[in-house]
Structure formats: structure tokens, C-alpha cells
Design a protein around this nucleic acid. Structure first.
Length: 592
RNA sequence: ACCCUCGUAGUUCAACGGAUAGAACAAAAGUUUCCUAAACUUUAGAUACAGGUUCGAUUCCUGUCGAGGGUACCA
């Protein structure tokens, strides 16, 4: 149990004994560093109930805590804030725990731990991954890691949008302009190849529209009647009819894309436990519609289309099934969620990592589940995130509109290389060691820069700034870790256990506190699904370490007999940095 | 038009309704024989605006302004 929790309970019991007041929420916070003390309890909210002045209540509660807890030795009151000071023995006990605990702060799932499915990436198979996918993947992967570190069973899943008009467009363009071309013949990643046909389709489509308009068609007609579009539509019909030749090509092109994605995923360091394919799920959900209809939760319009009315919840009416009986996107989502709870009997919740342009969609989806009365309707979470912008003109993508993920990764690697060469720290390493490090540093920069920001906010991503080896950046954290690792070789002294009556200096507590709160941070981050909390924590830790090491490189403590022990905290700091970074998916090299 | 999200130093980000709003980059000045100077210390600098709620508001509510997104028988 954390120190916060146990003290909070004592405070609650104080109010009960002293004033017969039952507090359902007591919360302690860390004392700000300008004040003396370790934990702070805010008295203001309780003054009225207790009919006391801050001074009186604080003195009374403070004495009670000193008398009734092992850990608290003294207190002070500033305005309405009761600052509690923890004993050195408490620190030493935790210190010993810290050194004894493997994987400090990270939990393993227990046998009956809840299972959470985290869905992320969810690409279309007609083009390569782009910058938006990078934020999606990094977020989803980090959240999955954090949930796992909280002791949950985690299933990492993606749903691949492998069917529909978009892939048919790439197929048509390939048939027209690229027959005989493969990733091998063109020496290009499969997803990039297929993406190039999608672009080609669009170019030709636009030209055809232009041509039709000049020959007298209205714009609306032209959009419909462009030959290449008609071709794509008929290909979709062929696909739906199960035409063998179409399916062979479809499978072939999708496979190219999957092979390409795999390389990108590998570069990003993300992976999946379970793949869902839309071609296998797009018909799901119709049963649920029937169910809702028979329970009169949904209704049919004259043309046969099915709707749900959410106006009483401040939303609109929403189409669930077209007049011709085919499903829309939300129909599938209804079906796949249901399917997942069937696939995994122990599943207790789903996290959907999807951009904030779909906030409304998920609001509607979740509210439909509630209407239908599914037991798990409240355990669905939309992990929504904002767009990633780039500083204007700094980066041009291959197509000019969206930033390609592979291009960005390559640029990050290059930038890391340039800066490393400039500083010249890696000179002793072999060529291949250097190449690996450039990749690690470039990606560490990208990941940290994106994850440190609150997901719902837009990000302005500046590649140059992110690879800066100074400041609040991934490389700075990686560097500090590497630095500690090389320092460790020179350190030998360590205390294994303490007995009693030790004295610690403030500066020593400073770094210890920072280490102790790591488990709390993971716990909190797991609740609010926020890797940003972990990212900001690890930076604080790194800074605390630098300050500490500058001033007190050796932790020196004295016992009652004035016998001095000397030890180093560095290896534990390095371990916690590594643990926190692994949650974020950031590699920390031992040397750089 | 309506709905949602966001507006914090010059810039990029922090701050369960709590104390004097924290960092980093950029700018200015300095330090350094336990260590990888990719460090450390110091200085200057911000809550878009106007109300409200309360012991206390960057945080909650209302309005204004600004940015982005959404209101499809698209996905």
C-alpha cells in the first residue's frame, strides 16, 4: 500500500473519531519544495464542518498523526496547509524495498486480472501509414504498456480496413497502368507501391472529370461518370460477388501492403496480438440492429432504412442500416465490439485509439450500446487525440499533402546522425553500432516529443527541436541513461540494509522522493490513459538526477554511532528511467 | 447555424479546485579535479477578454474573441 493511502486512512479515522465526520475522499499531495515537509493535507474544506481555525485543526490533526503513525514525525501549518514530515526510517525502509524490488513499479498481470483490448493503428490498405498513424500507434502502444504495467492483461489489436472502394481504386490503377509491377520489380515497399496507384487513380480521375466537364457535363455528373470511377465501382461489385480473379488481385495487393506495414511497425517498435479484418467483420452488426428493432430501440423509416433517435441525449438521429439493407460504418462497430467480447470471455473493456475527428461517432456508438443494455457498455473508452502539425515548409511529403511515416522516420534517423556527428560523441563506435544508435535516437526523439503532449491537444512537431540533445527531449533522457550506465562501472559502494536512526539531507530526499512516486505515476496514468504523465515524470526524474549528481554524487548517511555509509543511487535511477521509457516504447541505450 | 475540443513566457510543453502558475528551447551572465560540458547555477519573461460560483479559479459555469474539428445512406 502506498504511503499516501495509509496516511489518508488515518486522517479519515481522525475525522470520524473527533467529529463524527465521514469523509469519502481524502487526498494528500506532495509538499511543494519551497515548504518543509513531505506530504500536504489541505485543511480549508474541513474548517466549517469541524468549527475550528486552520491553526487549531492543523495542530490537532498533526498531533494525532504523529501519535498514530510510524511514518510521520513532525508537522507544520502554513495558512490552511498541514505539511507532514516523514521519518528518515521511512525513507530507509523504502530505500531498501527499492533495491530489493525487481522491475520496480511495474506489475505483472495476475491470473484473474481484467483483460483490456487496446485497438490502435487501424489502417486502410490502399496507402502507406502517415504522420497521424504515428501518433495513433505511439499512443495506443504506450497506453497498452501502461495498462499492462498496472497488472492488466492487455490485447493489442488493430482492425484493418481491407475492403471497399478505396482499395478498388488502387487495384484499378494498377490494372491500367502498373500490370507486371511488383514491389520487387520496382524495389519499393509494398504499401508505398499500392499507395502510388491510389495517387495515380486520383490524378486520372481528376483529369477525366475535367474532360467531361469541358464536353458539357455538369460537375456532379462528371464525378459519377468518369470512366475510372465506374471501373472502380464495378470492381467493388465484382469483389462483393466473390469474383475469383478480383479476389486474387485483392489478396495480392493487400499482402504487399501488409509486408510494407510490417517494416514500418517494426521501425516504430509496435506490435499486435490480434488482427481483425474488415472484410471479415463488415457484415457483423446486422443482428444487433434486428435486436434493437424488436426491442423498439431503433425504428424503420418508410424507405426501409433503420435509425436510432438520440435527440433526448442531445445528439441527432443516426442511420444504422441503409435502405438497401447494407451496413454503414457504425453498424460494423456495433458488431465488432460484440464480437470481441465473444472472442475474449474475460474481456472487461476496450480502448479505441482513434483521432478526435471521430469524437461524435464514438459518443453515438457508446450511447447505442447503453441503450441496448450491454453490461460492458460503460467500459468502452475512446482514446481521442488531436492532429499533428508540422512547421510550415519544413517538410514536404512525397505527395505533398500528408506526411509519410516512412519518410518521417528516415528523416528522424538522419537528423540524429547529423547532430551526433556534429557533437562527435560516438566516434569510438563501429559503423553498424552507429547506425543502430541513430535509429534509436531519432525514434526516441519522435516518440518522446509526441507522447509528452496531452493526447487531446494538437501537436506542433518540429523534427529538429525534438532531436535536440538538451532540454525536454527523448535524446536527453537517453543520454542521461547512457551516462549513468557508464558511471556505474566506476561505482562500487552500496549499503544493503539499514537498521535505525539515520539522517538524510534534503537533497538526498529530493531524489529519493522522485524514485518513490514512480508506482503512483503508473497507477495514475493507467486510470486516465495518459502516457504524457509518464513522459513528464521521467523527465523530472532525469532532471532530479542531474541536480542530485552534481551536488551529492554519493549518498552518504550516518547511523546513530556516527558510522558512515556511502552508496550510489544511480543504478536504481537508471532502472526507473528504463522502466518508464519502456512504457513509452522508447529504447534507452547503454552507451551513446 | 448548431455541437465538440483547444487558447498559459518570444517558442514548445506542465500544473487531482490549492500555497509565490512549473520546465525546456531561444536571450543575458556565470560555475566546474568523485561524472560523458549533451552538465550545473543565476537573471528576465505568461494564464486571450469580461463576468459569475467560493475560503481559494489556468482548472468549474455564462458570454465575447481566436484556432481546429464535427454536424453524410463516406470511412
Amino acid at each position: 500500500m502506498s504511503i499516501y493511502h495509509s496516511i489518508e486512512q488515518v486522517i479519515a479515522s481522525y475525522f470520524k473519531v473527533e467529529f463524527s465526520i465521514v469523509l469519502n475522499e481524502v487526498s494528500l499531495q506532495q509538499t511543494k519544495k519551497e515548504f518543509s515537509g513531505d506530504l500536504t493535507f489541505v485543511l480549508f474544506p474541513y474548517l466549517k464542518k469541524a468549527q475550528k481555525s486552520p491553526q487549531e485543526l492543523g495542530t490537532s490533526l498533526g498531533s494525532f498523526l504523529v501519535d498514530n503513525t510510524e511514518e510521520i514525525v513532525t508537522f507544520n501549518i502554513v495558512k490552511g496547509f498541514l505539511n507532514l514530515t516523514l521519518s528518515d526510517v521511512f525513507y530507509f525502509n523504502h530505500f531498501n524495498d527499492l533495491f530489493a524490488t525487481k522491475n520496480y513499479g511495474i506489475k505483472e498481470p495476475t491470473a484473474n486480472a481484467p483483460t483490456v483490448l487496446v485497438e490502435y493503428s487501424s489502417p486502410n490498405t490502399n496507402k502507406p501509414l502517415h504522420l497521424g498513424h504515428i501518433r495513433n500507434n505511439l499512443l495506443g502502444h504506450a497506453v497498452a504498456n501502461i495498462l499492462a504495467a498496472n497488472g492488466k492483461n492487455v490485447i493489442r489489436a488493430q482492425i484493418i480496413n481491407d475492403r471497399g472502394i478505396h482499395i478498388c481504386k488502387s487495384m484499378v490503377a494498377w490494372k491500367r497502368y502498373g500490370k507486371n509491377e511488383t514491389p520487387e520489380t520496382n524495389a519499393i515497399k509494398g504499401d508505398q507501391l499500392v499507395g502510388s496507384y491510389y495517387v495515380k487513380f486520383d490524378q486520372v480521375y481528376k483529369e477525366e472529370i475535367k474532360g467531361l466537364i469541358t464536353s458539357g457535363y455538369s460537375e456532379e455528373e462528371a464525378l459519377q461518370k468518369a470512366p475510372i470511377m465506374l471501373e472502380a465501382k464495378s470492381l467493388l461489385q465484382l469483389w462483393e460477388a466473390g469474383d475469383p480473379e478480383t479476389h486474387i488481385l485483392w489478396k495480392q495487393m493487400n499482402q504487399w501492403v501488409y509486408d510494407g506495414f510490417e517494416i514500418t511497425y517494426k521501425n516504430l517498435g509496435v506490435f499486435f496480438d490480434r488482427l481483425y479484418y474488415e472484410s471479415q467483420t463488415y457484415l457483423l452488426g446486422k443482428e444487433i440492429i434486428e435486436e434493437g428493432l424488436s426491442e423498439k430501440l431503433f425504428y424503420k423509416k418508410e424507405d426501409g432504412s433503420v435509425w436510432v433517435d438520440l435527440t433526448d441525449e442531445g445528439m441527432d438521429e443516426k442511420l444504422l442500416l441503409r435502405a438497401d439493407g447494407t451496413s454503414v460504418y457504425i453498424t460494423q462497430d456495433l458488431g465488432t465490439a460484440n464480437q470481441r467480447f465473444a472472442d475474449f470471455p474475460s474481456l472487461s473493456g476496450i480502448v479505441y485509439t482513434v483521432g478526435n475527428e471521430q469524437d461524435y461517432h464514438f459518443k453515438v456508438l457508446f450511447s447505442i450500446f447503453k441503450k441496448l443494455g450491454y453490461s460492458w457498455a460503460d467500459s468502452l473508452y475512446h482514446l481521442s487525440y488531436g492532429m499533428v502539425d508540422l512547421p510550415n515548409g519544413k517538410m514536404k511529403s512525397r505527395e505533398g499533402t500528408v506526411v509519410d511515416a516512412d519518410d518521417l522516420i528516415e528523416q528522424m534517423r538522419k537528423t540524429a546522425q547529423e547532430i551526433s556527428e556534429e557533437v562527435g560523441k560516438l566516434d569510438g563506435l563501429s559503423f553498424s553500432e552507429k547506425q543502430t544508435l541513430y535509429q534509436t535516437i531519432g525514434l526516441g526523439a519522435l516518440k518522446y516529443y509526441i507522447l509528452k503532449v496531452d493526447p487531446k491537444k494538437r501537436i506542433l512537431f518540429d523534427p529538429k527541436e525534438s532531436v535536440d540533445f538538451n532540454g525536454n527531449t527523448g535524446p536527453f533522457i537517453q543520454y542521461t541513461h547512457a551516462r549513468i550506465k557508464t558511471l556505474l562501472g566506476k561505482e562500487t559502494e552500496r549499503i544493503v540494509s539499514f537498521s535505525s536512526n539515520f539522517q538524510l539531507e534534503l537533497i538526498e530526499k529530493f531524489i529519493l522522493k522522485q524514485l518513490f512516486i514512480f508506482p503512483e505515476i503508473i497507477l495514475q496514468a493507467g486510470q486516465i490513459q495518459s502516457p504524457a504523465l509518464v513522459a513528464n515524470y521521467v523527465y523530472d526524474l532525469v532532471k532530479a538526477f542531474n541536480t542530485f549528481y552534481q551536488n551529492v554524487p554519493v549518498l552518504s548517511v550516518k547511523n546513530a554511532d556516527q558510522k558512515e555509509f556511502r552508496m550510489r543511487l544511480s543504478d536504481k535511477v537508471a532502472e526507473v528511467i528504463a522502466n518508464a521509457c519502456s512504457l513509452l516504447g522508447i529504447e534507452v541505450p547503454n552507451r551513446m
